Simulated assay, not measured.
Amino acid sequence: MIVYATHAGGRYLQLKDSLKEQPEGKRGVYVNLTNRCNCSCTFCLRHMKDMAEESSLWLREEPSVELVKDQLESLPWYYVSEIVFCGFGEPTMRLGDLVELLKYVKDIHPEVKTRLNTNGLSDLEYGRNTAVDFAGGILDTVSISLNASNAERYLALTRAKYGLKSYEAMLTFAEECKKYIANVVLTVVEKVENQEEIDRCKKICEARGLRLRVRTYEDK
Results as ranks from 00 to 15, higher is better:
Cys205Val: 04
Ser55Ala: 11
Met51Cys: 06
Leu164Ile: 15
Thr118Val: 13
Tyr154Ala: 00
Ser145Asp: 14
Gln14His: 07
Ile144Arg: 01
Leu124Ala: 05
Leu157Tyr: 08
Val184Arg: 01
Asp133Ser: 14
Val184Lys: 04
Ala151Ile: 02
Ala174Pro: 00
Leu67Gln: 12
Tyr12Arg: 14
Val189Trp: 02
Gly96Cys: 00
Glu168Pro: 02
Ser166Phe: 08
Cys44His: 06
Gly9Gln: 12
Glu111Pro: 00
Ala131Gly: 09
Asp219Gly: 10
Gly87Tyr: 02
Lys103Arg: 15
Lys20Leu: 13
Glu168Met: 10
Phe134Thr: 05
Lys113Gly: 03
Arg11Trp: 09
Glu54Ser: 13
Thr187Cys: 12
Thr187Phe: 01
Ala52Lys: 14
Val184Gly: 01
Gly28Gln: 13
Cys44Trp: 04
Leu57Cys: 06
Glu175His: 02
Phe173Val: 08
Ala148Gly: 02
Val31Arg: 02
Ala52Phe: 09
Leu57Trp: 02
Met93Trp: 03
Lys69Phe: 11
Gly136Lys: 12
Gly96Tyr: 10
Ile198Gln: 04
Val99Ala: 04
Val112Arg: 11
Thr216Ile: 15
Arg159Tyr: 07
Lys113Cys: 03
Gly136Tyr: 07
Leu98Ala: 09
Tyr4Met: 07
Cys39Asn: 09
Asn38Arg: 03
Val189Gly: 01
Thr172Val: 11
Ala131Thr: 03
Ala5Leu: 06
Glu66Thr: 08
Leu33His: 03
Ser166Ile: 11
Ala148Ser: 13
His7Val: 15
Asp123Gly: 10
Glu206His: 09
Asp97Asn: 13
Ser55Asp: 15
Lys16Pro: 01
Asp123Cys: 14
Ser74Cys: 05
Tyr4Trp: 08
Leu124Gly: 04
Gly120Leu: 08
Tyr154Thr: 01
Leu157His: 04
Asp199Arg: 09
Val65His: 00
Glu61Met: 09
Asn129Ser: 13
Glu196Arg: 12
Ala5Lys: 06
Pro76Cys: 05
Lys203Val: 13
Thr141Val: 14
Arg115His: 04
Gly9Ala: 08
Glu125His: 08
Gln22Gly: 02
Trp58Tyr: 15
Asn117Glu: 13
Asp97Val: 07
Leu33Ala: 06
Phe173Met: 04
Leu13Arg: 03
Lys16Ser: 14
Pro63Ser: 07
Asn150Ala: 06
Pro63Met: 07
Asn117His: 14
Val65Ala: 12
Lys16Gln: 11
Glu190Asn: 06
Asn129Thr: 12
Lys20Asn: 06
Leu59Arg: 02
Asp17Met: 10
Gly163Pro: 14
Thr130Pro: 05
Leu59Ser: 08
Leu121Pro: 00
Phe173Ser: 03
Leu19Pro: 03
Lys220Ser: 06
Thr130Ser: 12
Pro63Arg: 01
Arg159Gly: 04
Glu66Arg: 12
His7Ala: 15
Gly209Lys: 05
Arg46Cys: 09
Arg27Phe: 11
Gln195Gly: 01
Arg200Ile: 09
Glu196Trp: 02
Asn194Ile: 10
Gln22Asp: 04
Leu72Asp: 11
Phe88His: 08
